[in-house]
């Protein structure tokens, strides 16, 4: 039995796609600033990178507010339950057309592996990028006879940290874009993130709570 559930609410979708766009811009301009290639021109790249970075920070503030007030932050609490089953699914089950070992519901949108990866992103990679990015922007070289904020003797550690994070994010984006094709159909996850609704396999009654939630969100 298939059931259409409203899984990604409007703000969540807005947040996701804005974040996707900003990360794409930040990647493109960031690697130009890094010297990997030339595209916008260095001066433009720096200015776009800065603008996108500020927009990203504003978005993060709203997202944190949203996660806290809606309680959605609980989605990212890590669990060891089914983690082996989920790994086995990606390594073996998926090729045998086995069903997903964990069900997607409004209350548990993320499978145990996703929980781990997204938590890592949210508490490690993104904060590192934001903090090192702010230090990159606001460092001041120590000046003679002057007190400046954020005196850093060298930009190097900040820049290297920011570069490591950037490589990790690129790898994440590649894996992420691939993994969204592993839903019940190739496009079902993508569709859900665009329209909010997803066909979810239901092999039983909806819990009373879920029904209530679904009705509320509709």
């Amino acid at each position: 039995m298939k059931n259409k559930i409203y899984i990604y609410r409007a703000f969540e979708r807005f947040w996701h796609w804005t974040q996707a766009f900003l990360i794409f811009i930040l990647m493109l301009t960031g690697f130009e600033i890094h010297g990997t290639f030339k595209f916008f021109g260095f001066q433009n790249a720096v200015s776009y990178h800065k603008t996108a970075a500020y927009a990203f920070i504003v978005l993060i503030v709203f997202a944190i507010f949203w996660h806290l007030t809606t309680g959605e932050w609980r989605q990212y609490l890590p669990t060891t339950e089914h983690i082996r089953a989920q790994m086995n699914y990606y390594i073996f089950g998926i090729f045998r057309n086995e069903p997903h070992p964990t069900k997607k519901t409004v209350l548990t949108k993320l499978n145990p592996l996703q929980k781990l990866v997204y938590l890592g992103l949210k508490v490690l990679v993104i904060p590192i990028m934001v903090l090192s990015g702010l230090m990159y922007m606001f460092y001041r070289y120590p000046q003679q006879n002057k007190i400046e904020t954020l005196n850093l003797e060298s930009l190097e550690p900040v820049a290297l940290l920011h570069t490591i994070g950037a490589f990790m994010l690129v790898a994440f984006v590649i894996a992420h874009v691939y993994l969204i094709t592993t839903g019940s159909t190739v496009t079902s996850n993508l569709k859900a993130m665009i329209i909010g609704y997803e066909d979810v396999e239901q092999d039983g009654e909806e819990s009373a709570e879920e029904t209530k939630l679904n009705q509320q969100t509709k």
Partner: peptide, 11 residues
């Protein structure tokens, strides 16, 4: 360290 000119080969 100067952005665009420099990088760490290991990273």
């Amino acid at each position: 360290y100067m952005p665009a000119r420099d990088y760490n080969p290991i990273i």
